[in-house]
């Protein structure tokens, strides 16, 4: 602890370079780095992401072409380490390529929903009163639908296709994110430092920019990260129903669907896409858990 009164007499130079504490995000990173579980989860995600990004160079074979002579080979077959699917295509290559579409469908809707939902929720939370009621009741109407049903209904209405699937998933994730944003903003709004900022004559927009965003985006982001897993599963579900990615393009959900019939012949091969979905979603969940505890300021 520092003796404050005695420093008052210290010689002063207002332009002297001050001792700067490490920034907030740097300290979050430092705490996160000590969290073994979160770092492992992050490593797994990084690995799968780089597989997807570098698929053309990494994948050993063409994911779209196979031969019927080699269909449904077990794991460990020569030339097909992870076996082949029902059309004789190399599973390893399809899993690597499939990561591209699956990650895209898992992450993109959440990113869009993060921005839109945060904007809606923060507006409602900071404005309060009647504006809050109007916005949040509207959001609640969408929130009332089960997310699977809403995604399927929207996709069905918009028509099949990747773009429409992304759009409908975005719409599905806006309400929950908006609700979280609204609740953290409302809680923050009654803090004394917001009152103090108002007392200094700052406009609502300035207060939101300087004092609100920095404090609420973190928690909202953590929540959004945990939605990525849900988004991947929903996206797989849409593909499964034929509303998302079309065959023959590889996507984990779609692969799971088509291999479903082969479950008695090659159960391990059929389970592979499901394992990938599981690995990615649990990694996102663990990472967001770690992030949440790393973001708590008070030690």
């Amino acid at each position: 602890m520092v003796d404050a009164t005695q420093t008052a007499t210290a010689p002063l130079d207002p332009v002297a370079a001050p001792v700067r504490s490490e920034g907030y995000w740097r300290s979050v990173w430092r705490r996160l780095r000590r969290d073994k579980v979160a770092m492992t989860a992050g490593g797994v995600l990084l690995f799968i992401l780089s597989l997807a990004v570098f698929a053309p160079w990494i994948a050993p074979q063409d994911p779209l072409h196979g031969t019927m002579l080699m269909r449904l080979r077990p794991i460990g077959t020569e030339g097909h380490i992870l076996g082949t699917d029902e059309l004789g295509r190399d599973m390893l290559s399809r899993l690597i390529w499939g990561g591209r579409l699956s990650l895209l469908m898992g992450v993109t809707p959440v990113i869009f929903a993060f921005f839109i939902g945060s904007a809606i929720g923060i507006t409602a939370g900071y404005a309060g009163g009647i504006v809050n009621t109007l916005i949040m009741r509207t959001v609640d109407v969408f929130y009332a639908f089960p997310s699977v049903l809403l995604a399927v209904a929207l996709s069905g209405a918009l028509g099949a296709g990747l773009g429409n699937a992304l759009l409908s998933l975005t719409v599905v994730f806006i309400p929950p994110i908006a609700r979280v944003a609204e609740s953290v903003t409302t809680r923050l709004r009654s803090s004394d430092f917001i009152e103090a900022a108002r007392a200094s004559g700052a406009s609502a927009l300035t207060i939101v920019r300087v004092h609100v965003l920095g404090n609420v985006l973190g928690p909202i982001f953590v929540y959004a990260t945990s939605l990525i897993a849900v988004s991947m599963i929903l996206a797989s579900g849409l593909s499964f129903l034929g509303l998302g990615v079309r065959p023959p393009n590889p996507e984990w959900g779609l692969m799971l669907n088509t291999l479903r019939t082969a479950i008695y012949v090659q159960p391990w091969v059929a389970a592979l896409p499901g394992m990938m979905i599981f690995a990615v979603s649990i990694s996102f969940n663990l990472l967001s858990d770690g992030l949440r505890s790393a973001m708590e300021v008070r030690a």
């Binding site: 602890m1 520092v2 404050a4 009164t5 420093t7 008052a8 210290a10 002063l12 130079d13 207002p14 332009v15 002297a16 370079a17 001050p18 001792v19 700067r20 504490s21 907030y24 300021v297 008070r298 030690a299």
Partner: peptide, 26 residues
């Protein structure tokens, strides 16, 4: 920085810090 010095906090040591690093009195 002038004000910090005026209320008894050395600006070189306190200006760049965060609230949770200070005691209640500070």
């Amino acid at each position: 920085h002038d004000l910090l010095a005026r209320v008894g906090l050395d600006p070189a040591r306190f200006a760049g810090r965060y609230p949770h690093e200070l005691s209640g009195g500070q």
